[in-house]
């Protein structure tokens, strides 16, 4: 089905990159590299040049840490969203937040998409999406509170739980007025999950695709990749990219990523193998 984001309509088979732009001093991968306004502006220019269709602006790191209240989160995100909107009228702007107060302000500033990575913790967030005709990511986080780590979580069947919760959130959002063509679902790798859960979610991702809702995956450099390969943070790119390919092959549509240029190559390769995009230059054996 068509996925509408901002001014864009994407057809089935489109493979989109959501580039991560953190306005945080303490996020796990970039460790504050784009906390400064100017650094964040440069990061947006870089990822756009590398082929990202979406930027995902975050003001609060996912892991536990220093308290960031709604006022501070708004301070970190809203002016920046407005600046990006002004500089890139066509770029899809997402904001990674679970708070409806923040959502309302960033939508006023020009955000197109609310990335609710904490699984509908604040039910009023979807109401804001409906109010502003914004898009919404409905994520599985296993019912845990924002910024908590999973502790001895178990599921009778993790994919059944993922589908039940994310589709439930999506249907609820649609029922309160979010445009159905602007809703995505996300299995929430590492969120409310141990590594076994995240691997199974990846292995069975096609079951999410089969629901008909566009699937977003957020894999980039996460701990389940680090644990699977037993590698530190700065050695997770290959694991991230191979997982990206497996998800793309199964039908995921949107890929939230730190490493945009590399992810673009992986997705272009998958699209060519699938036969939806041609090679850029095929001359071998044809001269």
């Amino acid at each position: 089905m068509t996925l509408n984001l901002g001014r864009h309509a994407y057809s089935d088979g489109a493979l989109l990159i959501m580039a991560i732009v953190n306005r945080t001093p303490d996020s796990f991968y970039d460790r504050g590299a784009t906390y400064g306004f100017d650094q964040a502006v440069d990061r947006v220019a870089e990822v756009v040049a590398q082929g990202a269709e979406i930027v995902d602006i975050g003001g609060v790191k996912a892991a536990p840490g220093d308290e960031v209240d709604a006022v501070e989160e708004i301070r970190r995100t809203v002016d920046f969203v407005a600046a990006v909107r002004s500089a890139y009228p066509d770029l899809v702007i997402s904001v990674d937040t679970w708070r409806h107060e923040v959502a309302r302000e960033v939508c006023r500033g020009g955000a197109d998409l609310l990335n609710d990575a904490w699984g509908g913790h604040d039910p009023r967030l979807a109401e804001v999406a409906a109010e502003f005709d914004a898009a919404l990511v409905c994520t599985h986080a296993g019912g845990v509170a924002p910024r908590t780590r999973p502790h001895r979580i178990s599921y009778p069947d993790v994919m059944v739980d993922i589908i039940s919760r994310t589709v439930g959130l999506a249907e609820r959002a649609a029922a309160i007025g979010v445009d159905r063509s602007r809703i995505m679902i996300d299995p929430g790798h590492d969120f409310g999950k141990n590594t076994w859960h995240s691997l199974e979610a990846t292995r069975r991702l096609s079951e999410m695709v089969d629901t008909g809702w566009p699937v977003l995956v957020s894999l980039s450099n996460k701990d389940f990749i680090g644990e699977t390969l037993d590698v530190p943070l700065d050695e997770r790119l290959l694991g991230t990219l191979s997982t990206t390919a497996v998800c793309a092959w199964q039908g995921a549509s949107v890929f939230r990523a730190h490493n945009v240029a590399e992810t673009r190559q992986v997705l272009d390769m998958v699209a060519a193998i699938r036969g939806t995009n041609p090679p850029r230059r095929a001359v071998r054996g044809l001269a």
Binding site: P279, R280, R281, A282, L286
Partner: peptide, 15 residues
């Protein structure tokens, strides 16, 4: 050369 058949180079190839 087969290269001259429509679409066979994928993207356009300058040569």
């Amino acid at each position: 050369p087969p290269l001259l058949l429509p679409g066979l180079t994928g993207g356009p190839v300058a040569e």
